[in-house]
Design a protein around this nucleic acid. Sequence first.
DNA 1: ACTAAATAATTTAACATTAAAGTATTATTC
DNA 2: GAATAATACTTTAATGTTAAATTATTTAGT
Lengths: 169, 169
Amino acid sequence: MGTRYRGTREEVNVLDAFIKLMRASDSLTSRLSPLLSSAGLTLGQFGALEVLLHLGPLCQSELGRKLLRTGGNITMVVDNLERRGLVRRERGEDRRFITLHLTKEGRQLIQKIFPKHLDALLREMRILTEAEQKELGRLCKKLGKGSEGEIQAEGGCKKEITPSKGGRK
Amino acid sequence: MGTRYRGTREEVNVLDAFIKLMRASDSLTSRLSPLLSSAGLTLGQFGALEVLLHLGPLCQSELGRKLLRTGGNITMVVDNLERRGLVRRERGEDRRFITLHLTKEGRQLIQKIFPKHLDALLREMRILTEAEQKELGRLCKKLGKGSEGEIQAEGGCKKEITPSKGGRK
DNA sequence: ACTAAATAATTTAACATTAAAGTATTATTC
DNA sequence: GAATAATACTTTAATGTTAAATTATTTAGT
C-alpha cells in the first residue's frame, strides 16, 4: 500500500489517504457486484430498480438526479431494464415526461436481491465498529461535500457526483 | 444525505456509511477529472502515464496489475495513448511481452499534469486535518482489505480491486 | 396566437470496462 | 523433439458512461 511518489509529508499523506479511499470504494463495489451479476443486473440497473422500489414511480430525469447519471445514460439503462420486462415506461399527462414503474417481475427481482445485497454489505462493513462506521461516514461526508446534496438511493453503487464530467468527444 | 431504507439500526448505519463512502470517492474523482479532461486524458490514461512516470517502463500485464484493470482494457488504453504518441510499445526479448515506454511527449504531458492534479487533490483533502486523513486512511484500508495488496499508483483514480467482476455477457 | 425559451427524452460518437474466446510465443514434460 | 501447458496480448460482444446535438412538448412573453 501507500504511495511511491517522493514529495512533501503533506503530499505523501494526502496521496496515501486518497488512494486508500479509492481502493476501499472500488474493492467494496467489486466484492458486492457478483451477487448482482448473478441476477443479471449491472450496478446501474440495480440502482435504478432499488430507487424505484424504495421511492416509488419516478420520471427518468428524476431517476437521473437520484442516481447522479446523465439523461443519456438513464435512457440506456431503462432501455435494458424495459427490454427485460423489469420496468414499464408510461407517458404522463405532460407528454414530455415518462414515468417509470416497476413491473411485477421487476419488483420481485429487486425485492429478492436487495436483502441479499444488504446482507453482503453488512458483512463487509462489520469489519468496522459502529463508532468507526460513524466516523468514516463523517469524514467521507466532509470530503464529498461541494456536491448538491441530493438524496442517495439505498445501497446503490453510483458514480460521478456531477453529471457533467469525465465525458468524451 | 442518509438513507430512506427502513431497517434495523445497524442496517441504516451501514447503508449510511456506505453511501457516504461512495459519494466521497465519486465526488472527488469527478471534481478532479476536469483537469485531466483539459489535457485530453481520461482517468485510465492518466493512471497509465502516471505509473509509467513514477515506476518506469513496464509490460502491459504489469501495468494492468498496478491499475487493477483487465488485459483487454489495458490494450485499449495503451492503443489510445500510442495513437496520440504518448507511449511507445516495444517487443521484448521474450516476444510475448510488450514493454511500454513514455515518449518525450508523454513524459512532458504527465510531468505537466501530475503536479496540477496533486495540487487539486491537496486542496480537496485539506478539508480534513492531518489526523483525520490518517484516520480515513486507516478505516478505508480495513474496508478495502481482502484484496491482494498490490501497490497502487500515485494519484491515479482506479476502479475494481479485482480484475474479474462486474463484467458483461 | 406566435415566437422563444425551457424541459424531457433520445440519439450519436467516443472511450471505458468486463468476460470470454482467440492468437502468438515460451516453457515444461514425456 | 513433439505434445502440452502456461503466459501475454488482442479481439469481440455487451453494457456503461459522458457531452453534445436533436426531437418533442410545454410554458412564457409579447
